[in-house]
């Protein structure tokens, strides 16, 4: 088995955004379950939060390849 330590580091770095995205959508789902009429507003907020957390993961893989 051969590999690159950068990728192990990226794997560790991806844990954070992974948990973050899980939390965001958990909050979104319970929000919609409590107040279905707020779906539209909640959805844009959820997508913004998802994008923000996802950006960290993607920055991570960019740095893992670049450095």
């Amino acid at each position: 088995m051969e590999g690159n330590v950068n990728m192990v580091g990226y794997g560790l770095a991806a844990i954070g955004p992974g948990i973050g995205i899980g939390l965001i959508f958990a909050a979104y789902i319970s929000g919609v379950a409590r107040q279905p009429e707020a779906r539209g507003v909640l959805q844009s907020i959820a997508i913004l939060g998802f994008a923000l957390a996802e950006a960290l993961a993607i920055i991570g893989i960019g740095l893992a390849f670049a450095l």
């Binding site: 088995m1 051969e2 590999g3 690159n4 330590v5 950068n6």
Partner: peptide
């Protein structure tokens, strides 16, 4: 960059 290898038997 460090690489390693494990041999499976």
């Amino acid at each position: 960059m460090t690489t390693w290898s494990i041999a499976a038997e």
